[in-house]
């Protein structure tokens, strides 16, 4: 931990020539206490896995928040904003737990890691695109997260189980939102159906990564801490099929994926997302208002 993040250093003197005023970091320790169970320390192996979940939630929250004031109707500004807020809450709890392994705070992990240190899937890095594109991405991610958190609510790691038990109820609501919109867009006008179909074709190549097993988490699966990704696939596909069949759309063929998000090899979009998300914290470390 650097002196800039240990909660005491004043970073900018109070002087009239500084347009940003005095920026201090005395709030960081206070805020951290509200991000999740306080005392649990993750092992390094668990922390690495927790970052898979944390970074999926964080990047998806960042993407969805861009819809605020741009959605097709004001209720959707509110809905997507609320979903982003829930996901940010999950990300905070998960980042706090992951950071406990190395003495880093949630802010250290969100704002001061570089691209190769992120562990998010390529699906959450896909552009918002048009509204149909965002909704299909939501359908996939909320269905995946619901299946995953349902399993992790029974994890042998009590902190992970607690976060998952909380999150699963919220992502169920997100899944419901995505299902409702998928049905309306697919069964709406020719234009909305065409765009829904296009979104499915564009996004399906990134579904495979979510369900791909990875030897790095095998020890955690053996100890009942993590869920095996491939074991979630059947249940998620059954939901995709059921929802799309309501409007006579087919689930696209699964495609082999070379995406390497879980190992820090990312889609080209992530750098731009991080630049926007991290710029303020990096230019004014510890800024509060």
């Amino acid at each position: 931990m650097t002196s800039a993040q240990n909660g005491t250093t004043e970073l900018a003197p109070e002087d009239s020539e500084n347009p940003h005023g005095a920026v201090t970091v005395d709030q960081l320790d206070l805020e951290a206490e509200l991000a999740g169970d306080a005392d649990a320390i993750a092992t390094p192996e668990t922390a690495e896995y927790v970052l898979w979940l944390a970074d999926d939630a964080l990047i998806l929250a960042q993407q969805l928040s861009r819809w605020i004031a741009h959605a097709p109707e004001i209720e959707e500004d509110v809905a997507l904003g609320n979903i982003a807020l829930d996901l940010l809450g999950h990300a905070r709890s998960l980042l706090r737990y992951a950071g406990s392994a190395s003495g880093r705070t949630e802010d250290d992990l969100a704002y001061f890691r570089n691209e190769p240190e992120f562990r998010c899937s390529w699906m959450v890095q896909q552009d918002n695109g048009d509204f149909a594109h965002t909704i299909i991405r939501q359908l996939v991610m909320a269905t995946y997260m619901f299946a995953l958190y349902t399993r992790l609510a029974d994890s042998t790691d009590p902190t992970l189980a607690a976060i998952a038990a909380k999150a699963v109820k919220e992502v169920e609501y997100h899944r419901d939102h995505a299902v409702q919109w998928t049905l309306r867009l697919a069964g709406g006008t020719d234009e909305s159906r065409t765009r829904t179909q296009r979104a499915l074709e564009n996004l399906w190549p990134f579904v495979g990564e979510l369900f791909r097993d990875d030897t790095s988490i095998e020890p955690l699966i053996a100890r009942g801490i993590a869920a095996r990704p491939s074991s979630l696939q059947e249940e998620c596909e059954a939901i995709f099929t059921a929802v799309l069949a309501e409007e006579d759309l087919e689930v696209p063929q699964p495609q082999p994926s070379s995406a390497g998000g879980r190992h820090g090899s990312h889609f080209s979009a992530l750098g731009f997302i991080l630049a926007e998300m991290q710029v303020l914290a990096r230019q004014h470390p510890g800024a509060t208002w």
Binding site: E33, L34, A35, G36, D37, A38, S93, P158, A161, A162, I163, A165, K166, K169
Partner: peptide, 26 residues
């Protein structure tokens, strides 16, 4: 959290710790 600190300190409890728990989920 801030309101709890203020209310308890005003009532004479000078040393107050606020803990957050996720279990059992609300």
């Amino acid at each position: 959290r801030d309101d709890l600190h203020l209310a308890l300190e005003a009532a004479g409890f000078t040393d107050v710790v606020i803990d957050l728990t996720l279990t059992p989920a609300w």
